[in-house]
Amino acid sequence: MADITKNVTDSHHPADLEHHGAGAYYLVWIALLALTGLTWWTGQMHLPNFGLALALIIATTKAALVVLFFMHLWEQKGVNRVTFVCTIAFVIVMLLGTLGDVTTRLETLLPKREAPASELSHMPKHGEAPAHGAQHP
């Protein structure tokens, strides 16, 4: 009997965050700036096969830094982490279910696809006016 009279919802989680100096925030900020620079640099290379993957990896790293340190998820054990991880998991479920359809659907059931890549081969640089070769015949 004795232990159940303790408020069960109180003992588990001290609500106060750990106190530490502001230095960590500046480090995270510098890392975020650096990663932005990195993605800006690699993004302009237009790496043909893994450009998207690289951009997403960098973005996820940046997001992780923000979530873990600016938003303090690093210190918050338990349910807030579970909430966040579940959320991301369900976003991925939605993405996979939908892409699983579009990527395996019969060509004729898709909305009109764009012209073959050869007609769009000339890609202008950023800010440059696109060539007229990009027009649909």
Binding site: F90, G100, D101, T103, L109
Partner: peptide, 22 residues
């Protein structure tokens, strides 16, 4: 419940693969 939504789309043009999975 969140993994089953595609069974509403069996005849709507969804891919056969997705229909089977769902």
């Amino acid at each position: 419940g969140f993994l089953a939504w595609g069974h509403h789309l069996f005849v709507s043009g969804q891919s056969t693969f997705d229909a089977g999975a769902f």
